[in-house]
Design a binder for these strands. Sequence first.
RNA 1: GUGGCUGUAGCUCAGUUGGCAGAGCACCGGGUUGUGGUCCCGGGUGUCGAGGGUUCAAAUCCCUUCAGUCACCCCA
Length: 440
Amino acid sequence: MSKPTPISGFPEWLPPQRMIEQYVVERIRSTFELYGFAPLETRAVEPLDQLLRKGETSKEIYVLRRLQEEGPGGDDALGLHFDLTVPFARFVLENAGKLKFPFRRYQIQKVWRGERPQEGRYREFLQADIDIVDRDTLPAHYEAELPLIIGDALGGLPIPPIRIQVNNRKVCEGFYRGLGLTDPEAALRAIDKLDKIGPDKVAALLAETAGASDAQAKACLALAEIRTDDASFADAVRTLGVSDPLLDEGLAELVEVVETAAEHAPGLCVADLRIARGLDYYTGTVYETQMQGYERFGSICSGGRYDNLATAGTDRFPGVGISIGVTRLLGLLFGAGELSVSRSVPTCVLIALPAEERRRDAGRIAEALRRRGIPTEVSPSAAKYGKQIRYAERRGIPYVWFPGGDGTPDSVKDIRSGDQVDATADAWTPAAEDLRPVVN
RNA sequence: GUGGCUGUAGCUCAGUUGGCAGAGCACCGGGUUGUGGUCCCGGGUGUCGAGGGUUCAAAUCCCUUCAGUCACCCCA
């Protein structure tokens, strides 16, 4: 048996990174709950036809197959979900009778995509998703609320500042329609490449794939160039002289999002009319998020409004959602050495062992500390104290506890400063910042 | 999924026209009959990513494969 090797796209991190991940997830989770989102977990698999229901874009889906299975899977084959929105829409339809609308829920789960991995792109990764759905109609104010929640959740973490770029598909579609373009999808795809390939090549692409004339291509590019952190983008669009009811609707919605953000979280959001992500099921507002200094790695958080995803017969549940790519976020920062944790284990106190016969005494001390919420472990062996201290030092454990005996009291040493004081396990308390590992 | 680049110790990397696998840091043992970090002495800890081929001889040349990374596609 040769040495095991990693599997491409399925990252596994060491305990320090996992501690950071748990810390980040907990911050996100508690923020979501602070805004009233209810927890939900859906199964890892969906019927393939559910997964493919709305996205004509062929996502690379992992299919579930039993080893002993005979013959091909068939229509009811199962696939691993590639996001949390599609399973959620299915769940809403399935449980509509038991849910209260509008329904706010969060979901933090692994998702799987069979794409080629590279830095910040994985085949198995963690998403933290919030969505709000309502029955029949969904007020537009939710679209302004979501970015604020993300700003709050990520703003409290030791990561670079984020910038949420917002657009509205109605603006683009309305504009293209008013312009006389017949294939808005193709136009969006072309415009989306603006940052990457530049205006000249986008213009050529627009002509080629969307059948745009020179003037039309020029107008599309002019629209895409618009980017403001206040409502002035709307005037800039109107200056382009295209009129369409859908365009006006989109502009009004986008103004609402940007103005709300500007009031509650200045600098968080920017209206960026080149953003086209989420081509498949989004129908209105779309979000994309970049970390300052990590722009080239793409979006770490995106989403949008979908009016037709959760629809069955006459039941319609329009929704809006946004999803943080936790694994990408962390993978990029780990790669840059930007996130660290103060120790590699949760342990706050190591109980040193004077002799193996004293292990039970040490155990009693450890129990007393743990009862008061202080993470404690007992030394693995009664090696020389120097070695036991080194055991703690290697792991970043801040305190070593020396059991007394024969009339001498216990004492505890802060091995960073060397300070050592007499202590009793019923009363001693570490500095508050030392109780848990600190992420920074 | 398509194409390019890169894989040598825990980490960063040397390794000549094919000729006995190396350095720094880290780590381990000892000096230090139990309180670490400094200092001194000692130790290379390795399937040269893996498998096959050419050769007297392969880390080095060839093929395949795996992994990482970059571009495309797409996206968290």
